[in-house]
Structure formats: structure tokens, C-alpha cells
């Protein structure tokens, strides 16, 4: 597992995370290449089912980046997303998958450095947790 490169599904808000990503790119900041990115118009569009499906389909983690609380383009979409993340974590914990594989961050506007740091932080977090227990189970099954 030493060379484990996690697969992380990034669900990014168009208004903050993607703007921040642009800034990071233009500034030639480097960050971990482990994100499969999905653009959403607001994190408030993300449903519990999307998070579960991402995990079920093989993600090692789900990273959601939305606007700072109080600065959501749609006023409270990010607040809803936070609650749904909590619920999704609970559902994952119930079946023995660490809920902390799902993380949500706030980025205050186009802050490239912060964005790059979050990506790295999340990648490190998932690396430390190791591959999704679903993959481990599948692997153990193959080995058996």
C-alpha cells in the first residue's frame, strides 16, 4: 500500500472552488493530482445519494468545496450541504466505512493557495486512512 494514490471525487462549487482553482492554476501552484472533479452550481445541489454513489462506485473519499458560510451565491446552499454531509457520514459509519472520508471545506472566494492546500490536505487524509474498505474487501476476496 506504500504507493497508494487515492481516488477522490471532488464536488466543487462553480462560484468559489472553481474560481479558486483557476487562480491556483494561473499562479502555477502545485497540488495533488488525485481529484476527479464534478462542477456543481452550488453545493446545495449535492444530495446524500450522490455522495453514497461516489463511494459505492469506487471513490476513496469525497471532497466538497463550497463558499464560506454566509457567502453562498444561493444564500444557504452550503449550509444545507454541510447537513447532508453529516447525514451521509452517519450512513457510511453505519456500514463500517469511515464517515470522515467525506469532507466539506469552505473557500472564501478565489483564494488559489487555500484551494491548493485543501486538495493536498484531503489527499493526505485519505492516504492516511488507506483505500476505501470496499476496495479492501474486494481485494481480500481476490486473494482468498
Amino acid at each position: 500500500m506504500g504507493n497508494f494514490e487515492p481516488k477522490i471525487v471532488g464536488m466543487f462549487c462553480h462560484y468559489c472552488a472553481l474560481a479558486a482553482q483557476d487562480v491556483a492554476g494561473k499562479g502555477r501552484m502545485s497540488f495533488a493530482p488525485n481529484i476527479r472533479e464534478v462542477r456543481v452550481l452550488c453545493t446545495g445541489k449535492i444530495d446524500v445519494l450522490h455522495i453514497l454513489k461516489a463511494m459505492e462506485d469506487g471513490a476513496d473519499g469525497v471532497l466538497i468545496i463550497g463558499c464560506k458560510l454566509g457567502e453562498c451565491y444561493f444564500r444557504e446552499g452550503n449550509m444545507r450541504a454541510f447537513k447532508r454531509v453529516d447525514y451521509a457520514r452517519k450512513l457510511l459509519d453505519e456500514i463500517g466505512i469511515e464517515g470522515e472520508r467525506v469532507q466539506m471545506y469552505e473557500v472564501p472566494g478565489p483564494m488559489g493557495k487555500r484551494f491548493a492546500d485543501i486538495i493536498t490536505e484531503m489527499t493526505e487524509k485519505i492516504k492516511s486512512l488507506g483505500p476505501s474498505p470496499l476496495k479492501k474487501a474486494a481485494q481480500e476476496e481476490l486473494m482468498a
Partner: peptide, 9 residues
């Protein structure tokens, strides 16, 4: 989805 993941585990 939850049950599928559980059984896979």
C-alpha cells in the same frame, strides 16, 4: 447503495 456497500464489505 448503503446495503450494496455493506455486502461488498
Amino acid at each position: 447503495s448503503q446495503l450494496r456497500m455493506l455486502y461488498k464489505r
